[in-house]
């Protein structure tokens, strides 16, 4: 049984220019211990998808307008608020993009870790503090005993992200949602943090939903990948399959813009920009930027279709040119 099953998730923001569907009919699953990468340009709904799973979408203006999110067979959207809180931080944990602003500036990092431990483990102050120090050691922070008493501003960005990981993992979650955990960090620090996440996953056996716009990170860390565009998943499958033989023109575009040793000197880029959510085109959302456009694209909203061995893609052009299951 899959750990997390998201079906037809739809999250809408009510803006002054009308409803903006930030997440539209999104489907995916994550198995126990598996790492699913979610990629896409910024603004395509990755963070909102993650926040929807945590039920942390700011309401108003946002609301989850439909679909189900099953975690271990229970629909998260049906849970009472106390049950949901028991799940957050305990079974599903999350780390955010900005380590500089994700920690509370007026509380020590030790406190911020211990707080989660105390909440979900029901242990006393001293025990929680010891556990916090232990977590800091686990995320390879030197002198964890002293660091626990530090305030966030006394730590570097990489250190803070380690603290965030320590908070997230302090209660042994079954699913870790990492929303662009390394985007704000230097390349060298990024590698360290990714290595740390990888080794901790192997050690603790949790599943990871790894959000990023960096295909390299996905290739290195994830087993499967889902590609998002303007609130929809346009392609999904095993990393090797999707990157080796992309089906959707958007995925091709993303891969084409990736520098490769021995590849073409000039990088292909996707023309144009992501359309505003309140001004989406009819038919396929991607058609304003697509290079393989046909007439029908403006009339038909493409659905995710099976291409065999766990591959799915939503493109009517690909549908016609490829035979089913022929990937």
């Amino acid at each position: 049984m899959a750990l997390l099953v998201v079906r037809n998730l739809r999250t809408v923001f009510d803006t002054s220019e009308g409803p903006a569907v930030a997440v539209d009919s999104v489907n995916f699953t994550i198995d126990r211990g598996e790492t699913l990468g979610i990629v896409g340009e910024s603004g395509c709904g990755k963070s909102v998808t993650a926040l929807s799973i945590m039920r942390l979408v700011q309401t108003p203006p946002g609301r989850i307008a439909g679909g189900t999110i099953e975690f271990e067979g229970r629909d998260v959207l049906e849970l009472s608020e106390p049950d949901m809180r028991a799940l957050r931080g305990n079974d599903i944990a999350m780390i955010f993009q900005e380590p500089m602003t994700s920690l509370n500036p007026v509380l020590t990092v030790g406190y911020q870790i211990a707080e989660a431990v105390q909440l979900h483990r029901g242990v006393g102050n001293n025990e929680a503090w010891d556990a916090a120090v232990e977590m800091l050691r686990l995320v390879e922070i030197p002198e964890p005993g002293e660091r626990a008493g530090n305030f966030p501003h006394q730590l570097s960005g990489g250190m803070r992200q380690r603290v965030m990981i320590a908070i997230a993992l302090s209660c042994d979650p079954k699913l870790l949602i990492a929303d662009e955990p390394t985007t704000a960090l230097d390349v060298t620090i990024e590698a360290q943090i990714l290595d740390l996440l990888g080794s901790l996953r192997d050690r603790l056996g949790m599943a990871i939903m790894l959000i990023t716009h960096d295909l390299g990170v996905v290739a290195q860390q994830a087993e499967r990948v889902a590609v998002m565009y303007a609130g929809r998943i346009v392609e999904e499958g095993k990393v090797a399959d999707v990157f080796g033989d992309p089906i959707h023109p958007y995925t091709k575009g993303l891969l084409g813009s990736l520098p490769r040793i021995g590849g073409p000197r000039r990088l292909a880029t996707i023309p144009g920009i992501v359309p505003r959510l309140t001004e989406l085109p009819s038919g396929c959302n991607f058609r304003t930027r697509c290079t393989e456009l046909i007439d029908d694209c403006s009339g038909i909203e493409p659905e995710l279709e099976d291409y065999g061995s766990g591959r799915e893609a939503a493109c009517i052009v690909a549908r016609r040119t490829r035979t089913r299951g022929g990937a």
Partner: peptide
């Protein structure tokens, strides 16, 4: 309230009271 660390606090599973009074109010 719209700072990232408030979301961090919520993501830990803290209830709104704790988030408001322990994490937000102090700041």
């Amino acid at each position: 309230i719209r700072q990232d660390y408030i979301n961090t606090a919520r993501a830990k599973g803290l209830d709104e009271r704790t988030v408001t009074f322990r994490h937000a109010l102090r700041n």
